[in-house]
Design a protein around this nucleic acid. Structure first.
Lengths: 340, 340
DNA sequence: ATTGGCAGTCCGGAGAGTTGAGTGCCAGCG
DNA sequence: CGCTGGCACTCAACTCTCCGGACTGCCAAT
């Protein structure tokens, strides 16, 4: 059984170690914190914590550092999210205040978050969710090449290029465009996919191959989910905390660049009662990020679309502050995107 | 005066140093290369090269390494671009073979280039150049918010959001959309800007404020130049060559993330007779990249649009191979985008 | 349960000695 | 005049040792 005071000791070990980067000894604990007991007593508590594998000693007779399990207990039980400073709150306001479109909002958000935390910040694009088709445009690029643009009412534009069978005929293309818009305009994306099924048969059989090419591309765009895309900022911060990553930040940089790894990780994270998700150190081992932690929060945009944002950094990071920053930014972003 | 053989010595010093990461001594030169002279003679040549500041000794009595000036001479006079291996050529074909749209072509290109060179690869978006307006779409997002989408015939889609003065009126919006398309469709971007000037006055004065909002946004999009955007890949490679960057890759990562620095650098680079531009080490000092080199080549897309692509890496990089790779990829990309 | 004391452990830095790669110079040779 | 072999010299890097300091673990006393 771990006593109340032992957990207090764990808390200060995490705090001091995060702040100083150095193993924490019993003596420095009694010096810097008013525990009202002697160093020997602290040592007894530390022995308990070590037995529970919450802390460990890098070498015999040196201070202790938290284990991943220790960080986990700290985050779950001991960390009070510190409210942001007023300067930070103001930074959020001014940074996200005037934005022109979704792309820019997300870019600004991710920069803001990386500046607040000095870590790598990540924002996932919201899924298309309950968007409705607003307009479909067909643009011939050459004799056999066609660009198809799908515009929805939730400020998204999807584009795709295809090679069509046969020559492009401007007049007929105009007809297809008009009919396509009539058929799809205003439909939710799910309904649009259904409407496309019946669409091809409206045309003369000799034209069907051509129309099918187009419909298939539109169908893909309707089904495409932009939430498989991330915006990222603050990679340079990794260079500053390089020694926390076992020497090489290569795997981390690679994971960031691949995106797919992080998207999977985002997808598997379960939010706690604060709406925050945390994944610490070895919990990320299967993603090749055993020395990193990820803090994430969901956010919503108009239409109830849901996506995630968060920060990634070394296991030894300032959890209370960063969790507060992630939560605050997520809330602000939800408000900004919701009030459209 | 620097003799012929001295330059040969410089060449092998650069080659060996790049390959081994270690200062090159006179003895290892005669061992590994058939110079037909003794080590003492090589030493005399090295003394000459040192006088010309083409090589330097990290400490008294250790091998020599090239100076930035030495690399410059090597690149300008001594490097033969090695043709790519057939495997590499094939990689280009298969990698860029089937691409759906411009965004994806550029993403694939930059990944390809980073894999070929194991450096950071960069591709600049082509400027809008001689594109023509294809379609303008106005999409109401809320009572006072409007999305404006500009589609050109060169496979670009620009979007922007604005807050309009007053309430959105669907019918009137339709009228503006129709008239805008009539006025602009088919015009070159330069002409479109002119046509917009006369556009507002066609409307009833009470509507002008509203129309002006829209026109101003369209004007911005017409004027917007996408060539101020970069695609990037291979940042993880920096971690592998970290010690070539004086310990910290922070400034390099930051420059990559800021983009603007690199765009300025790209803009100032002058191509040599091969169409390749090189900027070596201290030549980049004003960009905070004094320990990095950039190799770039221009490429063109349909309509004669011009942009750059290249790689960024440590000063001590494999110039002949990387220059060949950059040139090959640039040529292939030009062909791919030109034949649309 | 807590404490002071004490012996033991181990890291890390300082200093000294050694090695080895490599240079600079010089006198001699073709 | 260029090239060569030889030789003395330099200096980084490595190893070894030593010592101080920061801790811990344990124990007997409170």
């Amino acid at each position: 059984m771990v006593s109340e005071r032992s957990l207090d000791v764990l808390r200060v070990i995490v705090q001091d170690y995060v702040a100083s980067r150095e193993p924490v000894g019993s003596k420095s604990i009694v010096e810097r914190h008013a525990f009202g007991v002697s160093a020997a007593t602290i040592r007894n508590d530390m022995a308990l914590l070590e037995e529970e594998e919450l802390i460990t000693a890098p070498h015999t007779s040196s201070g202790r550092i938290p284990t991943d399990k220790g960080y986990r207990v700290f985050v779950d039980q001991l960390a009070d999210l510190r409210p942001l400073s007023s300067a930070q709150r103001q930074a959020i306001e001014t940074f996200l205040g005037h934005a022109t479109d979704l792309d820019e909002v997300l870019v600004r958000t991710v920069r803001l978050l990386s500046q607040l935390t000095h870590q790598v910040a990540l924002v996932q694009y919201p899924s298309l969710g309950r968007a409705h088709v607003r307009h479909v445009e067909l643009v011939p690029l050459s004799a056999t090449r066609l660009m198809i643009v799908l515009i929805t009412d939730t400020a998204r534009v999807e584009q795709r290029h295809i090679d069509v069978h046969g020559e492009l005929d401007a007049e007929f293309l105009g007809e297809v465009r008009a009919r396509l818009n009539t058929a799809l305009s205003g439909l939710g994306l799910a309904d649009a996919a259904g409407a496309l099924n019946a669409f091809v048969s409206e045309f003369h059989p000799s034209r069907r191959e051509f129309v099918t090419d187009i419909v298939e591309s539109v169908r893909e765009q309707v089904a495409a989910n932009r939430s498989d895309k991330l915006v990222m900022a603050g990679a340079a911060n990794l260079a500053l905390t390089a020694d926390d990553f076992g020497g090489s930040i290569f795997p981390v940089l690679e994971a960031i660049e691949q995106q797919v790894t992080l998207l999977k990780l985002f997808g598997e994270m379960e939010p706690d009662h604060h709406g925050l998700s945390t994944s610490i150190g070895s919990e990320n081992a299967s993603f090749g990020l055993a020395e990193a932690s990820v803090l994430a929060s969901g956010y919503t945009s108009s239409g109830g679309e849901f996506a995630r944002l968060g920060v990634l950094g070394p296991t030894r990071m300032d959890y209370p502050n960063h969790m507060a920053a992630v939560r605050a930014v997520a809330r602000y972003l939800s408000r900004l995107l919701g009030e459209d």
